[in-house]
């Protein structure tokens, strides 16, 4: 019994760390969906770009500063964030501006093509050979009881909490945040009230790029090898966004973490004790999702919109 409990705890820690990555991607979905009702299919690719850009900065700065140390990671992180902001502005110009009066479907299509472009362009620039990302924390771990926790996982969890706290504060306490909320509720009314919705949309894309890039920076050291296929994690984060209810910030976090935990536990303890779980390992999250949606069609934290004819 104790054995099972330790196993479950161990898997949960790992699952939460994985779930935080999902949560960051899901949060990117949420931001854009809330403001523009567009599902951004390129969110996973934004994360991948972040991982690559961070890798690029780490190698550059370690060349300049002589060797990899704490400052290199810090500067690389700052560089990635500046890149993310510029990238968000660029995306706003490419995707959002030209299509602002077009149906939502067109914008979704644009994000799909953006995903294809980003994936191939990154591969063309970075070359086909996988990169070996460095981790600022090495392989260091510590133990609580018999549960092993890697410092990398803890740092991922802490970063996610910090980011979410910042965003929560921003959306609820600052002028721009409230303007964004207003815009997402009713763009026309917001415009009439004097909110510059063009700038709001730009902010939305910048934030989406920002969470994507930070997600990539955090995820990369967790992978032994970095290649462009990590962008498919974006597809895995869809159920997280949906589960929490598209458009809800706490929903994205809770959804991501639930999915992360389900995934690791089903791979671990569950499939150890129940042979048949192995058959449904990779779809168990989808089954949970469909069941939840059958009970709550708008996800756990989503609010049903009242429709008028």
């Amino acid at each position: 019994m104790n054995d099972v409990l330790t196993g479950l705890l161990q898997e949960s820690v790992s699952g939460i760390a994985l779930g935080c990555i999902y949560a960051l991607i899901a949060f990117g979905f949420t931001l854009i969906y809330r403001a523009t009702e567009v599902v951004n299919f390129a969110q996973g690719e934004l994360m991948m770009v972040g991982a690559y850009v961070n890798f690029f900065f780490v190698t550059q700065f370690s060349g300049v500063l002589g060797g990899v140390n704490f400052w290199v990671y810090l500067f690389a992180f700052a560089g990635s964030i500046i890149f993310a902001i510029l990238f968000g502005i660029l995306l706003d110009y490419i995707i959002n501006r030209p299509l602002k009066d077009e149906p939502v479907f067109s914008v979704i299509m644009a994000t799909i093509s953006l995903a294809i472009i980003l994936r191939s362009l990154t591969a063309i620039i970075a070359g086909p050979i996988s990169l070996v990302p460095a981790s600022p924390f090495g392989d260091n771990t510590f133990n609580i009881g018999s549960v092993v926790i890697s410092i990398l996982d803890i740092s991922i969890i802490i970063w996610t909490i910090v980011l979410m706290a910042i965003f929560y504060f921003f959306f609820n306490k600052t002028r721009w945040g409230i303007a964004m909320k207003a815009t997402s509720t009713d763009p026309e009314a917001a415009q009439l009230m004097g909110i510059p919705i063009k700038q709001v949309y730009r902010f939305v894309w910048i934030f989406a790029a920002l969470v994507g890039v930070i997600g990539g920076v955090l995820l990369a050291p967790r992978m032994a090898l970095l290649d462009t296929n990590i962008s498919y994690l974006g597809l895995k984060a869809f159920p997280a966004a949906i589960l929490g209810g598209f458009g809800s910030i706490p929903g994205a976090v809770v959804g991501g973490i639930i999915l992360g935990i389900i995934e690791t536990i089903s791979m671990g303890t569950l499939s150890f004790h129940f042979e048949w779980v192995k058959e449904i390992n990779d779809i168990i999250v989808w089954i949970v999702l469909i069941v939840v949606l059958m009970i709550r069609p708008n996800g756990l934290f989503g609010i049903a919109k009242v429709k008028r004819v």
């Binding site: 898997e11 994985l18 296929n229 089903s266 791979m267 390992n281």
Partner: peptide, 22 residues
């Protein structure tokens, strides 16, 4: 003892734990 993983998986805590338990 068989343990499965999905293509592109990054997390092997569950599988390793199972091998250990077995």
């Amino acid at each position: 003892q068989r343990e499965a993983y999905q293509r592109g998986a990054t997390d092997f805590v569950g599988q390793t734990g199972n091998l250990m338990k077995g």
